[in-house]
Structure formats: C-alpha cells, structure tokens
Design a protein around this nucleic acid. Structure first.
Length: 661
RNA sequence: GGGCGCGUAGCUCAGCGGUAGAGCACCUCCCUGACACGGAGGGGGUCACAGGUUCAAUCCCUGUCGCGCCCA
C-alpha cells in the first residue's frame, strides 16, 4: 500500500534489487528510471508518470484511493504543479507528521546531471519515433565485411562492427526548434498518417476515415544525425535523379576521427545502403586526434586549446599543414604544439631560398625540355632521384601515409636537390656559358617544377606562389596541374653509381678532416693508390677527372692525382692518411696538419668497429644451421660483408703500420 | 569486468624476421656568393621485462609490468 495516494502496489521479485543493501526491498518507479523501467517491463507493471516536462508534479496518471491512516488525498492533490524539489520536501514532512517514516539513512547513489545546466536529470516516459536500426545496420555491416567499404587503419572496422552488431532501436525524434520536421500528421481521433507531404497525408486520412479532417503535424524534428546521415546524397539533389548524384555518389574517401564512426559514418552507411542501394564511400580514413603537446585532449575548460589561426599567423599555413602531415602516423594521435610547427617551418624557408638561388642563376621554365636528352651524370642522377621521390610520395599517399609522403618530399628536396645537386651546380653556374650550363639549367627547372607539384598538397601557398613567379603557369594554376610522373632517364644506374661515389668521396674526406682537426683553410693533396677492385679502380679514376671541380671544392683539396712510383715509407709516410671510398684506396697528405696520435686513434677505432662486425658475421657463417637453412641470398650477403670488413681491416692495419701504430 | 592500442636515441615518432632509422635537441667546427629557420662533422639505443617459436627475434606467440582510449 503506497502511503499518501493509497494505491495498492504489487511486490515483485527481481535480480535487480540487492538483498544486501538496506532492507533488501526497493520501491521502483518504472516511468522515471532506466533500471526501474526494465524491471517494470519484465513484470508487466503499470508505468504512471508523476512528473511533467518541467519536472513538476502531475497527477493525471496517478491512481488515488481513500485508505484511512495511510492516504491523504487532499495533500496529494495539493502537490499538483509543484516543483519536484519542493514536492519531495513536502512529502517527507507529511509522511513524518503521519508517523509513517521508520528511519531515514544516508544513501549514496548515482544521479545523472545535465552537462550544461548541472541539474539532476529526471527520466520520463514519452512517445517518440524510432528507426529500426538493426534492419538498417544489416546491409551496412555486410558492406564492410565484404570490403565494399574499407576502413583505414583496418582495426577500426572492429569498432564499427561492435556498435553495429549490438545496435538498439534509434530514437530519431527530437523536441527542438530547428531541424527536418517529422513527416507525420495526426487526425483528431489520434490516428497517425505518415506521408511525404501534407496533401498526401490528407488523402490518406480521407481514404481511411471517409471524410475530410483537420490534420496536425508532429511538432518534433529529426535527430541531427538522422539528417546528417543523408548528407552524401541529399546534398547532391536526391531524391531527384540529378547528374550530381550520378557523378558523385558513391564518394571515394571519407576522412574523419574515430569518435565520429558511430555518430556519422555508421549512419551514413545505413542510409546510403537503404536509400541508394550503394555504400556512400569506398574508404573511411580514420585519422588520429590532434592533442596538445603533452598528449592531453584539447578542451576549452582546460585552456589548452590551440587556435590554428594563431599558429598560421606565427608560422604560416603551409608550415602548419606540413607539420600535421609529418606527424600523422598511422593509428596514432598527434601531439601538436607551437614548437612542433616552428621546427617544420624551416622547410618552407629552405624551399623558398632554393628557388631564389635558382632564379638568380637564370633558371626558368622550358616547356620543350626533354629529360631523356640529358647527358651529364649529375643531370641523370637528379632526374633518377626525382623519379624515386615521385614513386615514394605517390605510394605513401595511396595508402594514406601522410607522414611518409611528407618525409619523402623533405628528403628529396633538402637532401638531394639542395644539399648535393645545387651545390654541384654552383661551379657550373659560375663557369662559362655553354651546353653544360644549359643542360643543368634545364634539369633544375624541370625538377623544381616536380618539387612544386609534389609539395603542393601540403604546402599550397608557397608552391603556388613560386609556380606563378617562375612562370610555370598562371596565378593559381598549380592546383590544376597534373601530378608529377616519372620520366625516362637513360643510364640512370651508371649515373647513380657515379654520383653516389662522388658523394661518398667528399663525405669521407670531410669526415677524416673533422676527426683529425685539419684546419678549414688547409687544402691538402690526395693520392689515388693502387689496389681495390680493378674495374672500380678504373671507374673511380674516370670519375675523379669528371668531377674534379666538385671534389676539390667540396672536399677542400688542392689536387687529386694518382701515385707515381713507390709509396713513401717510414718517417716519410707519417702524415699520409689512408682512407678508402667504395673499396678504392686513397691517401691524403696531411703532413704538418695533424697529430699522429689522433690519427692512430682514428684508425684503431675504425678497425675496432670492423673487427666487431667480422666477429659477428664470422660466427654466423660458422653456424652450419645458418648456412643450411637461411635463404641463399642472405648467406651470400654475409660472405660479401665478411670480405669487405676483412679488406677494410687489412687496409687499416697497413695504414697503422706506416705510421708506426 | 570486457575490448582495443601503445611502451624503439634526451624529446616526438617511423621501422618490423637476417647491417637499428628520421626530425628536433646535444657536442665540435664554419657567418664559404640561396638559406645561421643555414653548412660540415660527431656522440647517443641490452628496441619495457620474462619465457617460447626459429638457423636467426626490436619484429611472430604467451605472460608480466606501465600508459592511454572505448564499452559495461
């Protein structure tokens, strides 16, 4: 018997109540609590509502009965329209007056609070429109299972499936002022007519009721996500059969964050499959979330939100975009901070300066330039490296590896084009006019154009500006240009071997100089020594002549010549420092420039490294299981390594012996 | 409690059965005729830990610890 109202209520047994808590019995209110609602459904209980939409007491559905000593119907009637908090206080006070309260104990339980107003939320039973989500989900699930739509990275398909396979009926009506209105009309007798237009609804009503009636449209609107789910085709003019629908549906790739998979991606999939009979997109690329420098999610209340516009003001839109692309590894969130953007800014500056240097040296677009016609190894080497960069960048973009794409562009532009090509081109530009200079200019303009195209997606502003300034095309025309394609490069392999050797030579000399503390101003002579592999020896001799200028300039040497007659020995040899490039031995005359102890240390250190490697490889090759079971090419590779390191040790030993090490 | 992901150089992150990589930071030298937001050289890692599979494990499997996220 319920006090005050005098209503008889049933006692039901259910697992929901916890016997260990309090009396073990709990009074439930199916109309105003999610758990109680489930219990009520299980036991077929009545579900009267006691609160209206403003959370004030509402007695319309409450059954009242006069029960002496227990009910107080006048008091209950007086509660009508009272605020919930006031009503609760009044009820407790009245129960105490009537001596119906045995005791009051503090009890901790969870009451949900609204995240905007912070007030306790009171669930209520209302009539709403539902979509049969399980039925809608089926074809969407199938589409992902069969690969008609693919998630990148693939692991997110699990998230999609987890939600879709356990989907609940979808409440699609909302009591808001703004949105697509629910297409349902009510007749005075409560009959519901669902139709596309009011005319159709009226016609239905006439047919059903036999007379014209006044219809009232449902005041509710559709859930935002319901409307958004229609986006892939409603924006194209659907339900009309427009050319846009035919051309753009289904879309190619949807780019979004994982938190949107259920809200939007899943809903678009359901609606697309249902209304269009076809998935809305082939690929769903799920990127990481942009977080702050410490990996915290950005939030206004935490105050760690970065305004992209501020970063753009400080470093430029290209720098921000390039930074984000560089950091966009697969399946990982991006920790973004001012410092990160600053670090990447220099790349744009580098590109700008490189272009400026090109401009100063008369490099301008040449529409008729034929890459296949170049003859200089430097030209061929650069075009070949550009081909590689194009291939890498393209492959990375195709699998949504924006970090790899950015890195490939960076490596090629900075490492190959600026650090080596432009440096090697300097002596040519400063030299006499002629075929060589013309060819280098041609190659430079071609490859600069390639770089601008490659980088345009991540650095649209600088590239577009340079494209226009150089006269590759009209203002804002780069965006419409074709993606760069590899070109045929005659003799690419030979050019690669040649330039790689030249680069290695310069690097080796620089390294030796730095380690031995040779003054920058010193310009020692280098002697080519006999030994090494004969074919390489011959090629190296040829390359030394062909790249004489660059080698002397960048290794800071006085001359490179072949050794004549007997090698010096004993005291005479002290200060002749040995090194090798690709197995071809050389000696650098550093007499008077270095301290022999430093040189001994250098050689001994290099020998130590080589010896450690020999030991490892030797152990491997000495293992019969390895030789028998490993792939033949791996075994072969190790034989080569062993031979190389052993030769290296022999050279180092000889060098040490010469200086009395 | 269930599920997913992550622990690799000081930092941020790639790599993924057979030589451990990048950027930044750091150290040394250099304002050399595009660029000091630059150039050259260099140091730095028992790839979280413990087992297992394998001729071979940072990489595959199992477990432990630590961190993050999602669902309940």
């Amino acid at each position: 018997m319920l006090p005050l109202t005098g209503r008889r209520i049933p006692v039901v047994a259910d697992e929901y109540s916890d016997p260990a808590k309090g009396s073990g019995a709990v009074k439930i209110t199916p109309a105003h609590d999610f758990n109680d609602f489930e219990v009520g459904k299980r036991h077929n209980l009545a579900m009267p509502s006691i609160l209206n939409a403003e959370a004030r007491v509402m007695l319309a559905e409450i059954e009242l009965a006069e029960v002496p000593g227990i009910s107080d119907l006048d008091f209950v009637r007086g509660l009508e329209g009272q605020d919930r908090f006031a009503a609760r206080k009044a009820i407790v006070a009245r129960l105490e007056e009537m001596e119906l309260v045995e005791k009051i104990e503090p009890h901790t339980h969870q009451v949900p609070h609204g995240d905007r107003g912070g007030v306790p939320i009171e669930p209520r039973l209302t009539w709403q429109w539902y979509a049969d989500a399980a039925t809608l989900a089926k074809p969407a699930i199938e589409a992902v299972e069969t690969g008609k739509t693919q998630f990148v990275p693939k692991q997110w398909e699990n998230t999609f499936f987890a939600w879709m396979r356990d989907i609940q009926p979808w409440c699609i009506s909302r009591q808001l002022w703004w949105g697509h209105q629910i297409p349902a009309w009510y007749a005075p007798n409560g009959e519901i007519f669902v139709a596309r237009t009011e005319e159709e609804a009226l016609a239905q009503a006439r047919a059903k009721l036999g007379a014209d009636v006044t219809l009232q449209r449902d005041p509710d609107v559709l859930d935002t996500w319901f409307s958004s789910a229609l986006w892939p085709f409603s924006t194209l003019g659907w339900p009309d059969k427009t050319v846009e629908v035919a051309k753009y549906y289904p879309g190619d790739v949807l780019v979004t964050g994982f938190d949107i998979i259920f809200f939007w991606v899943a809903r678009m999939m359901m609606m697309g499959c249902h209304f269009m009979g076809e998935v809305p997109f082939r690929t769903v690329y799920i990127h990481g979330l942009v977080r702050d420098e410490k990996g915290q999610k950005m939030s206004k209340s935490k105050g760690n939100v970065m305004d992209p516009l501020e970063l753009i003001d400080a470093f430029g839109a290209d720098a921000l975009r390039f930074t984000i692309a560089s950091l966009a590894g697969p399946g990982r969130d991006i920790k973004l901070g001012r410092k990160r953007v600053e670090d990447h800014r220099s790349f744009g500056t580098k590109l700008w300066n490189a272009a400026r240097f090109c401009e100063m040296n008369g490099i301008a677009p040449r529409p008729g330039f034929d890459p296949a016609s170049v003859t200089l190894p430097l030209s061929r080497w650069l075009l070949d490296a550009a081909n590689k960069a194009i291939a890498e960048a393209t492959a990375a973009l195709e699998i949504y590896r924006f970090d790899d794409y950015a890195a490939a562009c960076y490596r090629f532009t900075w490492g190959s084009f600026c650090d080596w090509f432009l440096e090697f081109a300097k002596p040519v530009f400063m030299g006499p006019d002629g075929a060589e200079k013309e060819e280098i200019r041609g190659v430079a303009q071609h490859v600069l154009g390639t770089i601008l195209r490659l980088l345009h997606p991540v650095m649209p502003y600088v590239t577009e500006e340079l494209w226009d300034r150089f006269g590759y095309g009209a203002e804002c025309s780069l965006i419409g240009e074709a993606w760069p394609q590899p070109v045929a490069v005659p003799g690419a392999e030979a050019a690669r071997a040649e330039l790689d050797w030249v680069v290695a030579f310069i690097t080796e000399v620089r390294s030796v100089r730095a380690e031995l503390g040779v003054p920058v101003a010193a310009k020692p002579a280098v002697l080519g020594l006999p030994g090494g592999e004969p074919s390489l020896q011959a090629l190296a001799a040829q390359w030394q002549v062909g790249h004489q200028d660059a080698l002397l300039r960048y290794a800071r040497l006085a001359e490179i010549s072949a050794q004549q007659g007997e090698a010096p020995s004993g005291a005479e040899a002290a200060g002749l420092v040995a090194f090798s490039v690709g197995g071809v031995p050389f000696s650098m005359d550093l007499r008077g420039h270095i301290d022999l102890a430093a040189e001994r240390t250098r050689l001994a250190k290099a020998r130590g490294v080589a010896e450690a490697e020999v030991k490892k490889v030797h152990a491997k090759l000495g293992n019969p299981d390895f030789v028998a079971r490993a792939k033949p090419e791996v075994v072969e590779e190790n034989h080569e390594r062993l031979a190389n390191f052993e030769a290296e040790i022999a050279r180092l030993n000889a060098a040490l012996a010469r200086i009395g090490g």
